[in-house]
């Protein structure tokens, strides 16, 4: 997966895929992504026509519907700029999922071309731009949730390297950190009992490590866990990795 991907350009121009979740719910995570990228000297383009990566229908088995959305994304993000996504899940959709659903399609090549220049944010910072430590300051004990769609990618080590390098921050280990939070997209609504039970177990593990904040590269997992926690009357504070990085810059007067 990592071998054929396209490295960023010298002028650091990038496109941002904000993700539908940030577009609808998590405006600040998308904003933090822009601020972090700009701090790194990137010029961020935001194609206004963007919608979604196509994953909901892909995971639901409705590949016709999904391909329709992916083709829209291919058109929207045309060109050769790196596409930065503040989500391991959407990135995996574009780097891996689309290869599966376009296997027998005539436009597989165009879809793969987008996949090769798509980067999850933390992966891009560390492995694309070569930035391995993060400046500024962030006071807090962080529980880092390894979202499942980052398995096999460079994202988790990248995000952990950045987070643990921030002055004042510590990453707290917790039990069964490789287990899923139970979100799984439409799984969360078609299998609500199992999904909730998985999430509740995850929260127990996380709470046992007494973190100040739960951090992930995916707002979808955080939406699930925060929603469960709040409904159960024990809310937890969540932040996207981009928000932590951005807050560290702010606290260090670097922004």
């Amino acid at each position: 997966m990592a071998s054929d991907r396209q490295l960023p350009r010298a002028d650091r121009r990038v496109m941002l895929m904000a993700t539908c979740l940030c577009d609808a719910f998590y405006a600040d995570a998308a904003r933090a992504t822009v601020e972090v990228l700009e701090h790194l000297g990137c010029t961020v383009e935001f194609p206004e026509g963007q919608t979604c990566c196509g994953q909901p229908a892909f995971n639901g088995g409705d590949w016709d519907a999904s391909r329709q959305v992916v083709r829209h994304a291919v058109k929207t993000f045309a060109g050769d700029l790196p596409v930065i996504v503040p989500s391991g899940s959407c990135a995996a959709m574009l780097t891996h999922g689309t290869a599966l659903e376009f296997e027998k399609e005539a436009d597989l090549g165009e879809v793969r071309q987008l996949g090769r220049r798509t980067w999850e944010l933390a992966d891009f910072i560390v492995n694309g731009l070569g930035v391995k430590t993060w400046p500024g300051r962030y006071e807090g004990r962080i529980a880092f949730h390894r979202s499942c769609h980052c398995r096999g990618s460079e994202t988790v080590p990248a995000a952990l390297a950045l987070l643990s390098s921030i002055a004042g921050a510590s990453v707290a280990p917790f039990g069964e950190s490789d287990q899923c939070c139970g979100f799984g997209g439409t799984f969360s609504v078609s299998f609500p009992h199992i999904s909730s039970a998985m999430g509740t177990l995850k929260l127990e593990h996380i709470r046992a490590s007494a973190p100040d904040v739960l951090v992930s590269v995916d707002m979808s997992c955080l939406m699930h866990m925060a929603g469960l926690a709040e409904k159960a009357g024990q809310p937890i504070r969540t932040q996207h990795v981009a928000q932590v990085l951005r807050d560290a810059l702010r606290n260090g007067n670097l922004l």
Binding site: A18, C22, A27, S188, V189, G227, E230
Partner: peptide, 17 residues
């Protein structure tokens, strides 16, 4: 099915743009 066990975050559609 979602809201039986979870709350929904506040809708902020369009705010980022």
């Amino acid at each position: 099915a979602w809201t039986d066990t979870r709350t929904l975050p506040e809708w902020r559609g369009g705010e980022f743009r």
